[in-house]
Amino acid sequence: MTNLLLEGMQWVLVAFSVPTLVRLLLGPTAADRLVALNILSGLALGFLVLRGVQEGRALYLDVALVYDIFGFLGFLAIARFLKDRMTDESQGGEEE
């Protein structure tokens, strides 16, 4: 029963990640892409944990933890860079 539960939930998470990916590809503004990236790494983390519990080996969950930490670092780097680009985009429109 637990295996069925875990397997089904993994498929549900994959089903959720497809529209998020569409939003990431389509997203008009950069903020939408960042939002989609944030959700995608959350969903991937959930998938990793579910798969780790299903396999039953503790090493699998370290992947999830490592991914969470480094995903957050990468996300910070992108967001910080976007801060300057966004400000000069909007200032560019008004002052230039």
Partner: peptide
């Protein structure tokens, strides 16, 4: 451990996006 760290990183990420779009004048 993963729950604790995820509860720290995900909302902070969302807050950062909101803050940067607000600062950029949208």
């Amino acid at each position: 451990v993963i729950i604790v760290f995820f509860l720290i990183s995900a909302p902070t990420g969302a807050h950062i996006v909101a803050r940067f779009t607000w600062n950029s004048g949208l």
